[in-house]
């Protein structure tokens, strides 16, 4: 079981969260075309490594969190609110 340190609510059990997918997948612009959207929706590396993920804290603050988790050990290295995560990204990636 994961325990996720929500930047708002503190350390909480996994049961309070809903996994919302790969946070490195950036939605293409609306006119990005089928290939870009296909890649956005379906193509995943499934790496054994650190991984950025979206988790929605449905059982707590209901904020969307960007979590850096190791897919092998489940260790969680960093957690931040989506607003902070998105503002830290280069404009092109938003």
């Amino acid at each position: 079981m994961l325990r996720i340190p929500c930047p708002w609510c503190g350390l909480r059990d996994e049961i309070e969260f809903r996994y919302r997918g790969d946070a490195t997948a950036i939605r293409p612009a609306g006119d990005g075309g089928v290939d870009a959207f296909f890649s956005y929706v379906y193509e995943r590396d499934n790496r054994r490594d650190w991984h950025l993920e979206w988790w929605l804290h449905t059982g707590g603050c209901r904020r969307l969190l960007e979590i850096e988790r190791h897919t092998l050990t489940h260790e969680i290295r960093s957690v931040r609110d989506s607003a902070e995560a998105l503002s830290a990204r280069p404009a092109a990636a938003r």
Binding site: C9, R12, I15, E16, G59, G60, C61, R62
Partner: peptide, 9 residues
């Protein structure tokens, strides 16, 4: 705090 108890929010 908001949490889950007895399976409900």
């Amino acid at each position: 705090a908001a949490t889950i108890m007895a399976q409900v929010p």
